[in-house]
């Protein structure tokens, strides 16, 4: 059996101007692979939110996208401050973002909820002071498998 296709990206910290570049690249790659538009939209939006979170809170990190025959997995890892209370962070509207971030239109407390909304499975592993890894999976529609 062939190895799943993997894409790896480094997400630069504290750079809002380039934030989202990896997600836009993934969208383009998935389009080239003729994935269905709704799957592409879900994967790229979930990944963008994760990227923005890493830029806002964790001084960047890494993003890996792995294409399995039945699903797309996105793994976002950082060595930032970690999330103190994951269930609180999952609530829509809860945010610890600073005012300068909010003035750019981010920090509305929608990032993690959007990531959950747009994926079929999401797991957060976080340790305060160590970092956070978010693993998300989007199942491919039957027809695309």
């Amino acid at each position: 059996m062939s190895e799943p296709v993997r894409f790896h990206f480094d997400v630069a910290g504290d750079n809002f101007a380039s934030a989202g570049e990896a997600s836009v690249k993934v969208k383009k790659l998935l389009r080239q692979l003729s994935m269905d538009p709704e799957t592409i939209r879900r994967v790229s939006i979930a990944m963008y939110e994760g990227e923005i979170n890493m830029v806002i809170h964790a001084n960047g990190g890494t993003a890996d996208v792995i294409l399995y025959p039945d699903r797309i997995q996105i793994v976002l890892s950082d060595t930032g401050p970690g999330i103190k209370d994951v269930s609180l962070a999952m609530q829509e509207g809860y945010s610890t973002a600073k005012d300068n971030v909010r003035s750019l239109g981010f920090g509305a407390g929608m990032g993690l909820p959007n990531m959950k909304r747009y994926t079929d499975r999401m797991q957060i592993e976080s340790e305060v002071g160590k970092g956070t890894t978010v693993t998300m999976e989007v199942f491919l529609p039957e027809a695309a498998r």
Binding site: I45, Y48, E49, G105, F106, A108, M110, N114
Partner: peptide, 9 residues
């Protein structure tokens, strides 16, 4: 909308 994550979602 002006909140980008909100718009995105």
């Amino acid at each position: 909308g002006d909140l980008l994550s909100w718009v995105m979602g």
